[in-house]
Design a protein around this nucleic acid. Structure first.
Lengths: 107, 107
DNA sequence: ACCCTTGTTCGACTTTTGTCGAACAAGCTC
DNA sequence: GAGCTTGTTCGACAAAAGTCGAACAAGGGT
């Protein structure tokens, strides 16, 4: 069971940005960044189905944002923080420290 | 002719990221950033039609990334650099200094 | 006035993306 | 091994996004 985890330098920056440009995935990334460690996939319960969650984690992985460790039937996910900070200094910080996930719905 | 230019703080960060997560738009943003000043829409010739270009410029504008000045039949576009740097410190720099627009197609 | 230039808007079309339930795969545990 | 748990994969579907040509709008020449 090989996981496709690309070299970060081989990922177009647009793919990285696209991966971050989704509410669900941003929540996941925030959670990962906040905890700092690794989390089982099942940890991320944001009112989405298993299938959808699996999909988003795949997008993140293939965009080079996360790394996954397989342990039995469980998969532990973690942010590739160091690599990201090295290749895109400031990007992750900027995104993570950004205001609220969705602004207070002022229209 | 009112142009819809939102307050940056009212734009979800995912919208900003989505706006940047496209090759054509990223090229436009790079061009704007490099030049530093303002450019007529027609400046951006990336092998796309007028309609498509207009569309991308609209996306950028509505994501709060650019500001547009109308002068006769021409429209001048510029990056909202200062505001962006203030609200998302490091983001733009990170994106702009990123390697090549599309990595050397190694597959 | 007429035409040319600059852009936008309007369908229309295609591709991509997000979402789900259901089926499947692979480990655990008893 | 039967059954449970954890995730992935497979259609299917709807919504969103990118693209274009054609029509339109509004200024600026001459």
């Amino acid at each position: 069971m090989e996981l496709h985890e690309p070299e970060l330098r081989d990922v177009p920056v647009t793919a990285v940005l696209a991966a971050l440009a989704d509410d669900v995935r941003l929540q996941i990334v925030r959670a990962l960044a906040e905890g700092g460690g690794e989390y089982a996939c099942g940890t991320f319960e944001f009112g989405i189905s298993k299938a959808t969650r699996s999909h988003h984690l795949k997008v993140l992985r293939e965009a080079g944002l996360t790394r996954t460790r397989v342990a039995g039937t469980t998969r532990f996910v973690r942010l590739r923080r160091d690599e990201l900070d090295r290749l895109y200094p400031g990007l992750l910080d900027a995104v993570l420290t950004a205001p609220t996930p969705t602004p207070p719905t002022r229209d």
